[in-house]
Design a protein around this nucleic acid. Structure first.
Lengths: 218, 218
DNA sequence: CACTGTGAATTGATTCACAGCT
DNA sequence: AGCTGTGAATCAATTCACAGTG
């Protein structure tokens, strides 16, 4: 009774690992464009990103043939193609749930670094935080999250709330029509028709201890 | 000319994905122990963690036969086995490099949540930050990092510095004998004999945009 | 009987190697 | 000549299915 992933387009089926690499290629291409470079080869992107050149070519080929054989990729053109694929032709709005240390850091970070994804809402349940502002965005109460997100039509959310609140927040995000979630709480979240990327910081930190031991394979 | 991973132990070769899940099992087992539960089945751990029960059994079996057929796992015993595997029998020291928003948030987070991994050093290059203290740890200047880490014998480090400084910091960590690194800078770091886990927050955030589009496979 | 432990099958992702263009 | 695009081969991780056992 497997929810048989429909073959919606004529293209192969795209590994999610490839999609996750696209923003990295985009970043380096924009870097290259803002320098002098007009043409970039997969070998050069490889040197810049640390991914192999075959992998880069294959990732790009899932979406079309953007390069010129014997030459390479037009940096500006490829950048705009990747933006189109990622749906980043216009800046996209996102919501941050949780204005604790982590939520604040992530919100500031993302406002500073990216034009492409804009944090348009920050929610917190602590009345002391509501009304204060983080990089120009006013913190709203979580109680109004559902209507606020519906009104603004935001489809991307980042969960940075404690374990105890993660599930209820997630349920509300689903009700609000959010389609993609980045979850930093240690609860593994999942739902049909919604993309969830879970990052469990405890897991990341503690698993390091294994590799810090003597005589272990790294 | 592949650096042929030596088969150091008699055991199969352990998928790194399995090692990364161990801390999650550990957390839930400790939760279970602090409740009333003495015995936990893979099915129950599955319900608690979101991983499948087969996966959990397989992960554990890489390290030994810890369960009782027909019964399940002794929660307390399994927790202590996992601690032993991860090298967390005594609390392990780590260093945070970078006391910006992200580094501070991560340091606070990890001090609050974990007994097992202790942030013992925080370094920053900004003289204004040096000397201040974050959850009881005094910020040291990056210029003294090498000697300080050598002196304390810390083998785990978290990089939370800007892109521009990441490579030099990494080189110094290697020189200081660090064996495992969690890297939040957007530079992909790697070196022989050292375990590096790269988390590129831009990549995580921007790739969400793809899945937020209409008509895309999620 | 109920659960673990595990080979075999499958799925997913990466790497290889080379044909195809420009 | 040089670099892309891509099937085939390999490698890694997950899932299946069931034998083994307290």
């Amino acid at each position: 009774m497997n929810s048989n992933r429909r073959e919606r387009s004529r293209r192969p089926r795209i590994p999610q690992a490839a999609i996750r690499r696209l923003p990295v290629y985009l970043r380096e291409l924009e870097e290259a464009v803002s320098g002098e470079e007009r043409v970039v080869s997969s070998a050069e992107l490889s040197a810049r990103t640390g991914f192999t050149s075959e992998q880069i070519r294959k990732d790009l080929a899932y979406f079309g043939a953007f390069g010129t054989r014997g030459v390479g990729y037009d940096a500006r053109l490829l950048a705009s193609q990747i933006k189109r694929i990622l749906g980043l032709t216009h800046s996209v709005g996102a919501a941050m749930i949780g204005a604790g240390h982590l939520g604040t850091a992530l919100a500031r970070f993302s406002q500073a670094e990216h034009k492409d994804i804009r944090i348009r809402h920050i929610f917190d349940k602590d009345p002391a935080k509501v009304g204060s502002s983080i990089n120009g965005v006013v913190v709203e109460p979580v109680s109004t999250m559902l209507e606020s997100l519906r009104a603004s039509g935001v489809r991307i959310a980042v969960i940075a709330v404690p374990e105890t609140d993660a599930r209820t927040v997630f349920a509300e995000l689903l009700a609000a029509g959010v389609m993609a979630v980045l979850n930093f709480s240690p609860v593994k979240l999942a739902a049909d028709g919604v993309h969830v990327q879970n990052i469990d910081l405890t897991m990341e930190l503690e698993s390091l201890a294994y590799y810090a031991q003597e005589g272990v394979d790294r």
